[in-house]
């Protein structure tokens, strides 16, 4: 009994403690330290900034209830429920509604959609993902391009 205790349990407990320290504490903390110092944008959730204010995470879908914005997928339609992206078809089908609501020409909207697709293509080294549109990025771009159109929407939250 004594031998089992000293030959099996004692090294097992010690190795577990050592590995908790190594893999459960030191390893994630080291990654955190490196991440926070060298890649703060990604480390903190890829936050999108507009006019000096954080307006969301590039990677997480957010709701838009105004028809002036592109809409993300219904949260339950995707795998994650927070899919930030839509397909080109989904984006293009929304263009007439947005154009109506904002008065922005359809062609201008189309161009912005295509620019976003191109940007995402770059992110994915051209071949590693199908074409898609990041809804938040596209909407931020709309606000940037047509501040006067979105003055009301963005002003409302300007104070906070």
């Amino acid at each position: 009994m004594r031998t089992i205790k000293s030959k099996v349990f004692s090294p097992a407990i010690r190795i577990v403690v050592l590995m908790i320290i190594t893999t459960g504490v030191a390893y994630p903390l080291l990654i955190t330290a490196i991440g926070q110092t060298t890649l703060p944008y990604q480390s903190n959730g890829s936050q999108v900034v507009l006019n000096g204010k954080v307006v969301g995470s590039e990677l997480i879908a957010q709701n838009f209830n105004s028809t002036k914005f592109f809409q993300p997928r219904n949260s339950t339609d995707s795998g994650s429920g927070v899919d930030p992206d839509i397909t080109p078809n989904m984006a293009i089908s929304q263009i007439p509604v947005i154009s109506n609501a904002t008065g922005i020409p359809v062609n201008a909207l189309k161009t912005l959609v295509e620019l976003d697709i191109a940007k995402n293509k770059e992110t994915n080294a051209l071949v590693f993902a199908p074409d898609y549109i990041n809804v938040l990025n596209l909407n931020v771009e709309l606000v940037k391009q047509y501040p006067e159109v979105y003055a009301q929407e963005v002003l409302v939250k300007g104070g906070t």
Binding site: P28, I31, T32, I34, G35, Q36, L39, Q42, S43, N44, G45, S46, Q47, L50, K53, V54, V55, G56, S57, E58, L59, I60, Q62, N63, F64, N65, S66, F69, L136, N139, V140, V143, E153, V154, V156, K157, T160
Partner: peptide, 25 residues
């Protein structure tokens, strides 16, 4: 991390959305 996975000890971030709401991530 470089590709976009976060790494922080904070459990959440709270942001004001484009339309003015609050989003806790």
């Amino acid at each position: 991390l470089f590709l976009g996975a976060p790494q922080t000890l904070d459990p959440t971030i709270t942001v004001g959305t484009l339309q003015g709401g609050n989003q806790t991530i």
